[in-house]
């Protein structure tokens, strides 16, 4: 069922159950927000997406308010702009504001809003949360004094990853996101939380000082760890990977695992093989692919000739795609002539 409403005077249509924010996005009408993520349940915490709706006594959050027939929405009245400015000022009054050395400078939503609202001076100042405790894992760096409590990390961990490693503890100004009993983070380290964090509160430990938004080129590639084939965006500076992300419009919907997100250091490892090696006189020597394949083919033929096809067996890998695995078993059965074929993930 389609619902007709107006947003900023523009007549738009929305599906029943859609929120004002979803509808505005569909029509390219910009509403600022820090806590909303289309992949997660609406939260209504940051209060930036407040809009005015005719007939409602006070501004309402567009991320949580469903559209109704004939609704008249205004997204940028002086009142809501004033409230948004106050909200950002309040957030900045409890923020280190150390963009100069922050990993996320140039790619930080809070910084972006401060820029758009022209907030250099701040009417508010006072106590700032300061957390010095660092937890000891090799993957995720948590700078909780930069946290704006948007709750996206908590929600993604619950709703997408199904892990629930973190939640909000304490009350009021002292509220903070942490693992239970404030122990060190001890989870899957998938880094979904890092990927949704709008500020520099969460980052990859190996990303530190590898480069920020400037002079970084994004290279799309496919993760080679498993057959899922997640789409990666390598952020490359010079010839070095600064960090890894993934876009929401991929088949993996932008979600990655610990390996895809943090396990890329092998790329520059000196131990990495770059050509096939053939053992000659007891020593591995570099060879071309043609040489290697020809050598393998010759040896396979010889073994089959001498001992029959069942003297060979094939073991395939979970790192291959379905198609590759299909081809592999086909090769073993049709070309080699044996049913001795298996797979490492068969367990």
């Amino acid at each position: 069922m389609s619902i007709k409403l107006t947003i900023d005077g523009k007549e738009v249509e929305a599906d029943l159950g859609a929120t004002i924010l979803q509808t505005a996005r569909k029509y390219g009408i910009y509403i600022p927000t820090l806590c909303d993520n289309p992949a997660l349940e609406p939260y209504g915490g940051c209060r930036l997406c407040l809009v005015e709706v005719e007939g409602m006594p006070k501004p309402t959050t567009s991320c949580t308010t469903p559209v109704t027939e004939g609704m008249k929405v205004k997204t940028a009245t002086p009142t809501v702009e004033r409230l948004r400015k106050t909200v950002i000022e309040l957030l900045l009054s409890d923020h280190p504001n150390d963009c100069m050395i922050c990993e996320r400078a140039g790619d930080c939503k809070l910084q972006e809003f401060a820029y758009f609202y022209g907030l250099r001076a701040n009417r508010f100042y006072g106590k700032r949360r300061q957390y010095t405790k660092q937890d000891g894992n090799p993957f995720i760096e948590r700078n909780m004094d930069k946290c704006i409590l948007c709750g996206q990390c908590v929600r993604v961990c619950n709703e997408v990853q199904g892990v629930g490693a973190i939640d909000i503890a304490y009350r009021g100004f002292d509220a903070k996101v942490c693992p239970s009993f404030e122990r060190d983070l001890n989870c899957e380290f998938c880094g979904q939380c890092v990927s949704v964090c709008p500020t520099g509160a969460l980052s990859g430990r190996i990303w530190e000082k590898k480069g920020r938004a400037l002079n970084v080129k994004e290279v799309e590639t496919t993760c080679s760890y498993c057959g899922c084939g997640c789409q990666l965006n390598l952020h490359v500076r010079g010839n070095e990977i600064a960090r890894v992300s993934s876009k929401p419009d991929t088949h993996n919907e932008g979600w990655l695992c610990v390996k895809g997100r943090f396990g890329y250091e092998f790329i520059t490892s000196p131990d990495r093989l770059k050509t096939p090696l053939i053992k000659k006189d007891g020593k591995f020597t570099e060879a071309t692919w043609d040489e290697a394949i020809a050598y393998i083919a010759a040896r396979f033929k010889k073994i089959v000739e001498d001992h029959g096809p069942d003297s060979l067996a094939g073991l395939s890998s979970a790192r291959c795609t379905n198609e590759e695995n299909f081809l592999f078993q086909k090769f073993m059965r049709a070309v080699i002539g044996t049913n001795n074929v298996d797979h490492c993930a068969r367990l």
């Binding site: 209060r47 409890d94 009350r171």
Partner: peptide, 21 residues
Amino acid sequence: TQSESCGKCTPCRIGTKRLYE
């Protein structure tokens, strides 16, 4: 009120703290 705020929304979490200050 500032110590009883749940901390979910910005105006209440930080705003009441600043009011108190």
